[in-house]
Amino acid sequence: MQFLVISRRLTEKFADTDFEPMVPLEGARARELYSAGFTRQIWHRGDQPGACQIVEAEDIDAVRKNLATLPLAAAGMIDFDIIPLKPYAGFNP
């Protein structure tokens, strides 16, 4: 099953200097999740610090478990909206 994950850095609780040392670690873990087939596509957000990604997992609990391994999530510095996706019916006659 695929999910849309929208993340947002908690900039109201943490300063830019708090995020700086975490960014390389976050990128490394994101690459691991991509290599493992969990993350299918990922983008930086254009409106605020954070990312949007399409992920694939058996269920929402598996999504939460994988996202929790990201350093910013483990540090409580990021928030996620997780949206389950289903096929678009408009392409079926």
Rank of each mutant, 00 (worst) to 15 (best):
M1I: 05
M1G: 11
M1N: 06
M1Y: 00
M1F: 00
F3V: 05
L4P: 01
L4K: 01
V5W: 08
V5D: 01
V5Y: 04
S7P: 11
R8P: 07
L10E: 06
T11G: 10
T11S: 12
E12Y: 12
K13V: 00
K13Y: 12
K13Q: 14
F14V: 09
A15K: 13
A15C: 02
A15I: 00
A15H: 10
D16I: 14
D18H: 11
F19M: 08
E20Q: 12
E20W: 04
P21Q: 07
P21V: 10
P21N: 09
V23Y: 09
V23G: 06
V23W: 11
V23P: 06
E26Q: 15
E26T: 06
E26I: 07
G27W: 01
R29F: 11
A30R: 09
A30P: 05
R31F: 08
L33F: 07
S35F: 04
S35I: 01
F38G: 03
T39L: 15
T39M: 15
R40K: 15
Q41E: 15
Q41Y: 08
I42H: 03
I42Q: 05
I42E: 00
W43N: 08
W43R: 06
H44K: 15
R45V: 09
R45G: 09
G46S: 13
G46V: 09
D47C: 07
D47P: 09
Q48W: 06
Q48K: 13
P49G: 13
G50T: 08
G50F: 06
A51V: 15
C52Q: 03
Q53L: 11
Q53A: 14
Q53N: 05
I54Y: 06
V55G: 11
E56M: 11
E56L: 07
A57D: 01
E58A: 14
D59G: 03
D59N: 15
I60G: 02
D61H: 13
R64Q: 12
N66H: 13
N66L: 02
L67Q: 00
L67M: 14
A68N: 09
A68M: 04
T69A: 08
P71E: 08
P71D: 03
P71I: 09
L72M: 15
L72C: 12
A75W: 03
M77G: 05
I78W: 01
D79R: 13
D79Q: 13
F80R: 02
F80K: 00
F80C: 05
D81I: 09
D81M: 12
D81E: 15
I82H: 03
I82N: 04
I83K: 06
I83V: 15
I83S: 00
P84G: 08
P84K: 08
L85S: 03
L85K: 01
K86R: 14
P87L: 06
Y88N: 12
Y88Q: 03
Y88E: 07
N92H: 05
N92V: 13
P93R: 08
